[in-house]
């Protein structure tokens, strides 16, 4: 269980996250929505202890994040926003997937049979197993993102935090990706927090939705709350143009149109 209490983050005297409180239970699949600069990345980084709040706390399973990371770091899968990974490293896909499995004297390392099987398995789940020995910088953006997803799974994580996993991923595979994530949260009771700009899909697949724009505007069961007003509040009045998917059954204007 992840518990965020009165979290406030400030950059250069600018309040980026204002008094956020929320609870995420084990096995929940949570979607975070909000416009550019809303603080979504900052929120997930704070949950990982990468950003230090000026006020408030983040606890995982009852202990402070920093302590949790020290003890269980390997049990968190984290997909950073696409642009901040050094894709120019001269490493193959298999090395990129294994990169968090840090070992002493890693320069001389050979992967074990079971490690290779696990890499192959997760690459095939995300549909890029044929790229296993290609160099990461020679993959397309979407393929790189799929490799990163496989990397996250290598720890068999309890918590999976994905910052815009659908960046560069095509529409067809996106649907498949949400299905995979949903299944992981169901079957493996993996807690999944996903930041996304894909409002329609998020409202369709996740259990809980959070609308963020500096403040947390809503937090509730997908399909159980009326989003239209909140989304308008969060994104501004141009929101209507964005919502066109009927996955969001309770959206006022969708109902109006029907």
């Amino acid at each position: 269980m992840i518990e965020v209490k009165n979290l406030t983050v400030v950059f250069d005297e600018k309040i980026v996250l204002d008094d956020i409180s929320m609870k995420i239970g084990k096995g929940e699949f949570v979607g975070i929505l909000g416009p550019n600069g809303a603080g979504k990345t900052t929120l997930v980084k704070s949950i990982l202890g990468l950003e230090k709040p000026v006020k408030g706390s983040v606890k995982i399973d009852g202990v402070d994040v920093d302590e949790y990371i020290k003890a269980n770091g390997a049990r968190i899968g984290y997909l950073p926003q696409y642009a901040i990974v050094n894709w120019n490293m001269p490493i193959r896909v298999v090395d990129a997937v294994m990169i968090e499995k840090v070992k002493p004297f890693g320069i001389f390392r050979k992967y074990s049979k079971s490690e290779m099987e696990s890499v192959r398995y997760w690459l095939s789940v995300f549909g890029v197993e044929d790229k296993m020995y290609d160099y990461i910088k020679e993959l397309s953006g979407g393929q790189q993102q799929r490799v990163s997803l496989a990397r996250c799974m290598m720890h068999n994580p309890e918590i999976l935090i994905l910052d815009e996993p659908n960046t560069a991923i095509d529409a067809v595979y996106n649907t498949r990706l949400y299905g995979i994530l949903k299944e992981l949260s169901r079957k493996n009771s993996m807690t999944i927090i996903m930041v996304s700009h894909d409002i329609g899909a998020v409202t369709k697949y996740v259990d809980e939705i959070m609308c963020l724009n500096v403040k947390l505007h809503c937090h509730g069961k997908s399909g159980s709350i009326n989003f239209s007003d909140v989304l308008k509040e969060v994104y501004g009045k141009d929101m209507e143009i964005v919502i066109h998917e009927d996955g969001c059954k309770n959206c006022a204007f969708n109902k109006d149109k029907q």
Partner: peptide
């Protein structure tokens, strides 16, 4: 491998402890 991970992405390195 530690330096390799740091060069790849510092946030992942932090989480790896």
């Amino acid at each position: 491998s530690h330096f390799q991970l740091i060069s790849y992405n510092e946030e992942l390195a932090y989480i790896a402890g």
